[in-house]
């Protein structure tokens, strides 16, 4: 990922009022994680299970803090139960930023499953998503996603396509 893309994500989160972040690191969003940990603007808690991160973000929301969970699209499968219970049964929302592993041009065979299952799983969980494929659209997408979460009181995902995550795709 280019440094400029990571900048757009960090500044986009700040512009949208997000102050709490959780993540389970993946390789495509790598430049973002250190920025979140080092920037005192954010309260950042890395996790070892994406379901825990989703719960943390929902808890932060309950305390009035806008939050974001960054995770590879495998994390959507891992956090299925937490997303379903917290979102549908309880009414606590989580904003997610997800790299589109398994997108067209991803050269890793392990990512095939991630790409093929991500959208059907998000649809099954009724989670609206916005796929960003241009670096110049990142800030606006974050702002729109955070607004939609607020209006619907439900999870929203911003999916970052391979074009914005991988240099020399």
């Amino acid at each position: 990922m280019k440094v400029t893309v990571a900048n757009e994500v960090i500044e986009g989160l700040k512009d949208a009022g997000v102050k709490f972040a959780s993540f389970l690191p993946d390789s495509w969003l790598r430049p973002i994680y250190s920025r979140l940990v080092e920037d005192p603007h954010f309260t950042t808690i890395p996790v070892s299970n994406e379901g825990v991160g989703v719960g943390l973000c929902c808890g932060a929301w309950l305390g009035g803090m806008k939050a974001v969970m960054l995770m590879e699209n495998t994390g959507v499968r891992m956090a299925c139960d937490q997303l379903a219970r917290l979102g549908i049964s309880v009414g606590l929302p989580c904003f997610m930023i997800i790299p589109y592993r398994g997108d067209f041009g991803d050269g890793q065979s392990y990512a095939v499953a991630h790409g093929q299952t991500m959208l059907p799983v998000l649809d099954a969980l009724r989670i609206p998503y916005h796929i960003v494929r241009d670096e110049n659209h990142i800030r606006q997408s974050i702002r729109r996603c955070v607004k939609t979460l607020s209006v619907t009181n439900y999870h929203v995902a911003m999916i970052m396509g391979a074009e914005v995550c991988v240099e020399n795709l």
């Binding site: 825990v52 943390l56 929902c58 808890g59 009035g64 917290l86």
Partner: peptide
């Protein structure tokens, strides 16, 4: 009182809430 954040979710939700409101 906040009831039933979903089985398994209570520690993460409570921790996230505690981090958001460190004085409470």
């Amino acid at each position: 009182n906040m009831f039933n954040s979903g089985m398994g979710n209570h520690i993460p939700v409570a921790l996230g809430l505690a981090k958001a409101l460190p004085h409470r």
